[in-house]
């Protein structure tokens, strides 16, 4: 029988190397980059880059708001999707939520500029703007997820639509006017190290959720092989809606924190945040084709991002160069991801 002829078939996969987590690569990268800045710091400025608490805390504060977004974006990317609407959701939630958080007085005088002055909706309890903001994020995320899951429009296009729409909403809300004068309670949301604390809570929560819950398991399964997940009885559509809804909510949290911290919300808040968030995830080893990655990785990606920004500032590199270098790093991370997949024989 022909079948009995020697047929090497697929050679047994060599049991090479132990599982080498991508997070470890990212961590090595972080250490290397920090060391480079440390050395450059001594050479250029005659000062330490790393051993400076105020610089480190400013650094982590700067990236925490986008880090909150990146936690949601990570989950979206693990399903094999992408979310370009995060930054616009930040803008829309910040300005709309803030308009429910204004004080009725400023410097002892009536603050008639308050958005809802005529309705008398000033000095509202802080849960009002929070609920409004979270609801908006949830709504935007649900729309993203439903469009992607049920119409099969690619995530890139669907969330690009939301990016434009949500930004439009942000501008329309006050016809371009900034919203300011928030209550003390609302201002407290983003004050001091609160952004870092909120980020840490959210990041730890979702790292655990992704590792230990059904939701996490199915998120990886869908990104790995959506057809197999469906065949196994997972409701892929409903799951995707949940993932995008969570991402929308986390963008809203970022919007609340950013608005609160700035004390003024403008329609332009959060522009390009989505790209930074995606970059943090990809730098942290979250694969753009889905199925692989973790919040821990994204956290390391976020630190790399922070070190680079604060490192260049420390070295007094011009802001224009910083932007260009950031762009280069994003492209490099994506290229590295594609190269990795290629080597593992997933894409060609």
């Amino acid at each position: 029988m022909a079948e009995l002829a020697i047929n090497p078939g697929r050679a047994a996969a060599p049991q090479r190397r132990r599982n080498w987590p991508m997070e470890l690569n990212a961590l090595l990268g972080l250490v290397a980059i920090a060391l480079i800045f440390e050395i450059a710091g001594w050479m250029v400025r005659g000062d330490s880059f790393l051993f400076n608490w105020s610089r480190l805390s400013i650094m982590i504060l700067q990236v925490s708001v986008i880090g909150i977004i990146a936690v949601g974006v990570t989950q979206v990317i693990i399903t094999g999707g992408i979310d370009l609407s995060s930054g616009s959701i930040v803008g829309a939630t910040a300005i709309i939520a803030m308009s429910f958080a204004q004080m009725g007085t400023r410097n002892g005088q009536d603050f008639t500029d308050a958005v809802f002055w005529n309705q008398g909706w000033v000095d509202l309890p802080v849960f009002m703007p929070i609920i409004v903001g979270l609801f908006l994020g949830l709504l935007a995320g649900l729309i993203n997820g439903a469009v992607i899951a049920y119409t099969k429009i690619p995530p890139f296009i669907a969330t690009l639509g939301m990016m434009v729409t949500a930004r439009g909403v942000a501008k329309w809300w006050t016809e371009g006017q900034a919203v300011s004068n928030p209550t003390a309670d609302f201002a407290a949301i983003g004050a001091g190290m609160m952004p870092v604390i909120i980020f840490a809570g959210i990041a730890i929560l979702f790292q655990l959720v992704l590792t230990y819950t059904l939701y996490g398991r199915h998120t990886y399964a869908i990104g790995s092989n959506a057809a197999a997940a469906r065949m196994a009885g997972i409701n892929v559509e409903r799951h995707l809606v949940t993932v995008y809804a969570i991402a929308g909510m986390l963008s809203a949290v970022a919007g609340l924190v950013a608005g609160s911290r700035a004390l003024t919300a403008q329609a332009g808040m959060g522009v390009m945040y989505e790209l930074d968030a995606i970059a943090m995830a990809v730098i942290g080893g979250v694969s753009l084709i889905g199925g692989r990655g973790s919040i821990i990785g994204t956290f390391i990606g976020m630190l790399i991002f922070g070190v680079i920004i604060s490192g260049f500032t420390f070295l007094r590199v011009d802001a224009y160069y910083q932007e260009m270098i950031k762009g280069f790093i994003i492209v490099a991370a994506v290229v590295a991801d594609i190269y990795r997949q290629k080597r593992r024989g997933i894409v060609d």
């Binding site: 398991r217 790995s224 092989n225 197999a228």
Partner: peptide
């Protein structure tokens, strides 16, 4: 119909996972 990025137990129980504590989708 296997999920390539998941390990063996995750694939064996895909869609019929054993649950320690029932919290709906977040079990």
């Amino acid at each position: 119909a296997l999920a390539d990025d998941l390990d063996v137990p995750a694939n064996l129980f895909l869609g019929r996972e054993k649950i320690l504590l029932n919290l709906g989708p977040f079990s």
